[in-house]
Design a protein around this nucleic acid. Sequence first.
DNA 1: CCTCAAAACTAAATGCGTTAGTCTTATATC
DNA 2: GATATAAGACTAACGCATTTAGTTTTGAGG
Lengths: 206, 206
Amino acid sequence: MPYPSQISRETVLEKALDLLEIGGVENLSLNKLAAELGVKAPSLYRYFNSKAELLKAINMATVESLVETMRSAAVGEDPVETAQAMTRAYREFAKKHPASYSLAFGTLPEEMQPDHMYMEALALPLQAVMSKIVGHEDSLPMLRGVWALVHGFVMLEISEQFRRGGSVDEAFEKAVRSYIHGWKQGRADGAARPRSHQNSASRRSG
Amino acid sequence: MPYPSQISRETVLEKALDLLEIGGVENLSLNKLAAELGVKAPSLYRYFNSKAELLKAINMATVESLVETMRSAAVGEDPVETAQAMTRAYREFAKKHPASYSLAFGTLPEEMQPDHMYMEALALPLQAVMSKIVGHEDSLPMLRGVWALVHGFVMLEISEQFRRGGSVDEAFEKAVRSYIHGWKQGRADGAARPRSHQNSASRRSG
DNA sequence: CCTCAAAACTAAATGCGTTAGTCTTATATC
DNA sequence: GATATAAGACTAACGCATTTAGTTTTGAGG
């Protein structure tokens, strides 16, 4: 090997994650990142073809970490308890790594999104637990709801939208519990509700 | 008035909203925006002190529109039906204006966030309905959960995370219904669950 | 010793937001 | 009608961003 390598794909990724969590995504520039690594910005292109590719790699690492976190939280006997433990672990992860979580799961251009497999790896363990609660048939829609609930909750928390006092922890616990119990009980209902189709006002705030 | 005014605060805002919905936030540059208005970029600074201020104005307009949309959807007698109608309207709005919704409610620097009043104006009508369902006492935590559920759902939809088939519309309807019913029923429980505190693994994916 | 190629570098293009200063012109006043 | 005022546009330029192209440094192998 010629020229003693100062950086590698891994060291770049690690330092990028550090900078990301410190200053948010808008403070993660290739200049700063390179400077932190004792190198100039163009050198990073030996390891990543673009900044987008770097961010995608970061996001995949984030999803992997989150999957691992949830996996290790899925230990209980009672599936309802297990589901709560997993969602709790999910929330703790997101609050511990707010910048990288927001980056990975926020709205971002297709090219920076983790591959589908990574997202499925995230979804499947939780869906398995849903399956135990409401059966295989309903497990997908139930998964979507619980994921939405947890994701929405932590996103609102991260952007500090819960400013009106009261225990946010308890609100989270109760929300998840209510959702699960509501679904279990609701399987008896069955009757489809009417869906409104046309909404008036062609332009906003008519 | 001297020099025939080519643009105004309002025309800038309207065109910015157009560009935002067409190309997403990363395609909304002051250069392009000015060019669309037949003007050069620095001229925009007569009407907004910074791009951040422009984006904040956009976001406040978005929240206002959403508030109005939900208000006009809150018409029913049964509070549960009303809550579903409001969340349905919320979701329809977000899907109709995905870029501006994501911008306003995604993770963004404090300075671009709508003022607190706007967010409260959004929350209060929905909380009033929650209040009718579970009482004033529980209305805040219940509101937080339903907002999280709806927000998370539409954010995941916008970033196309529901790719595995099945009716997403029905999943949404059922999720909201389950959450509300679960909360109503759950008010009898009362017993607090144990909360885990220490989670192992100091660094990610240990 | 000389060649090769990996891994860094410099230089520069393009585009971004932003600031400072300048020109243009509609209106109000004499 | 001439003139002063000031609003509303303009050009020029700075600093930083990502990215490309071409060059230099440096260790290892023949």
